[in-house]
Design a binder for these strands. Sequence first.
DNA 1: TACAAAAGTGCAATCACTACACTTTTGAAC
DNA 2: GTTCAAAAGTGTAGTGATTGCACTTTTGTA
Lengths: 192, 192
Amino acid sequence: MTELGRRERKKLQTRQSISDAALELFMARGFDDVGVKEIADRADVSVTTLFKHFPSKESLLFDEDEEQKSALLGAVRDRPAGASIPQALRDHFVEAAKGHADHPLFADFQHLVRSTPALRAYAHRMWMRHQEALAQVIAADIGVPEDDVRCAALARFALEARDLIFDQPDRGRAADEVFGLLEHGWAADQQS
Amino acid sequence: MTELGRRERKKLQTRQSISDAALELFMARGFDDVGVKEIADRADVSVTTLFKHFPSKESLLFDEDEEQKSALLGAVRDRPAGASIPQALRDHFVEAAKGHADHPLFADFQHLVRSTPALRAYAHRMWMRHQEALAQVIAADIGVPEDDVRCAALARFALEARDLIFDQPDRGRAADEVFGLLEHGWAADQQS
DNA sequence: TACAAAAGTGCAATCACTACACTTTTGAAC
DNA sequence: GTTCAAAAGTGTAGTGATTGCACTTTTGTA
């Protein structure tokens, strides 16, 4: 689409160098045992430049998740006929988890993030940023005002559900139970 | 119950001085515009001592929430006969919110916390710490293993719900809708 | 070719937080 | 009452992320 000039290409290249350096060092020695100075050195830029490209040390590991976001919204918007929204979200998460299981590198990355409090918190915050957009897609889908509370709640709960499920040993079953709760409510199973 | 010796009394007193100093300064000038040095000075202790009593700058504003926690667990455990768990949690949150509306100082405190990203995040993290305990109480109540996923999910969603509801203009209605979702599920309202 | 914007640099500073080695206080045992 | 070890407190010096500033270099473009 958009042809990038040399300037923009170089800028992206610098950004990528920094990002690469950070990933390698963090994976090798852990987030807390690598300083930004060392990353900047390896990427052959100054610390100042590093912070012109990334707002914080944590952000070095997380590139734009525009893709992730649109996949999420798409999963709801373009769900198969007859599928409910919670079902669509459940399926989307299970699929995504499967896709990640392929990449062996990704598992290490996940482990790094989940075992480092600062990264875990940052990743969670980034992920929850999608709440508003998701809520709006849901609201549009069922034809209610875009600030409807129930849509906001479903969006929030579903996004939280992903992390909740990730901790469970049997993720498939966990996903079924958690999204079952969202779909049919707490009351559904209690008096059975 | 426990008689406190002079030593422990003095320790608590020091802690309180620090806490008071922090609250006053933060309320007057905002969280980010007050340094820990200044707080320590006003409390007439060293910065080192300040950090012996509190693990971080944010924690200066949040005292032990053991009380809050047991109130939360009690609301579920001792709920009126016939009330469901989501209902009990809903009522508990609505009651708590009312109680806070009384204290005029509390409103300012709330505003400070909610308008300062670092504090907002910290408060949220503290609040969500109750998830595990709440999940266990729920599990015990309905007689399932304490690591049941649905209980963990209900606990998490309910705790998240509080903050979600707080943002809404009409909190009573919002509470009804959000906890209605937890109680009866997304499907319940959709095909009506 | 000249010029303004963009990208990058180096330095000094801020600020939360920690490690350390030290003094003072205090509770309790003798 | 004296003694002694633990607890509480202090001051200093450091680390490490992040920012502001004044500066040079690069690059698109007129």
